[in-house]
Amino acid sequence: MLSFLIKRLLGTAPVVLMVMIAVFAFVHLLPGDPARLVAGPEATAQDVAAVRASLGLDKPLPQQFVTYVSNTLQGDFGTSLRTRRPVVEEIGMRLMPTVWLTLFAMLWAVAIGLLIGVVSAVRRGRWQDYGGMILAVSGISFPPFWLGLLLINLFSVRLGWLPTGGYGTWQHFLMPSFTLGLGVAAVMARFTRSAFIEIAREDYVRTARAKGVPERRVIWHHSLRNALIPIITMVGLQFGFLLGGSIVIEAVFAWPGVGRLLVDSVSYRDYPVIQALVLMFSIQFILINLLVDVLYVLANPEIRYQ
């Protein structure tokens, strides 16, 4: 196990390096002069030159990259062009709201997805199955930002039960997390159904039935347990997509998270923040994939030796 972990971690290193090069190159791909952007539109040529020197943009590229990596490793991501505050502070303030939002969204997704998936598989070919799968394909096709608006209209504008947006109490969490989780719930439902149907063909399920194990126990004990391995993998992989989805959902519900910070930063062309956020999101995805791989091996030792 340890050697697998080390091998897998070493395999991640070049990917992280590639991402860092891409994020570093990002500023140089931008149209226009980054030093002028930082200095602002009214700056004189002298100001721009001073900014260029202070940012180290006059140095050769390889040297700039080394500086960038060393700054990043020390947690120095520069200053936001919009608020003039350190980027680390800007992101730090908004990180936890997004983390909580994705976690609660995943709770909805697993609860709804597993339920629909299992019911569809068990009632395969009957109306429950068709109904479940119609719900699933609709869930995949439903624009999440529209769902968010419809929910706000019903529960906030008309009924007045829930706040339209913002962050704070548990009431603030209900609609955003449900909206974000529903798309993943649909994916989970489809996936659970096929994993379940696959397992129903296995010998041990047939044996369990043959020796008279009650159907309920066959479903929840023999089948679901074994279906859990691929489902756990799926949960891990979908986390990345929840983080991506949160960018849009945070805009719908005025959620003070990193997703909204990213959209605002793109609109304001606040490059230091964009750069740091893209790097942060990328490293998160790489870590999630790594974690999924490790969990998978823990659950199924055969893979280790392949």
């Binding site: 991402v19 990002f26 991506g244 793109v266 893209v278 999101f281 995805f285 994939n289």
Partner: peptide
């Protein structure tokens, strides 16, 4: 693999950050 590891919307936003809205 690298591209697939990212949710599409994040990649799209990164591209728009470079090209403009």
């Amino acid at each position: 693999d690298l591209l697939l590891a990212f949710p599409g919307i994040l990649l799209a936003i990164a591209v728009i950050a470079i090209l403009g809205p």
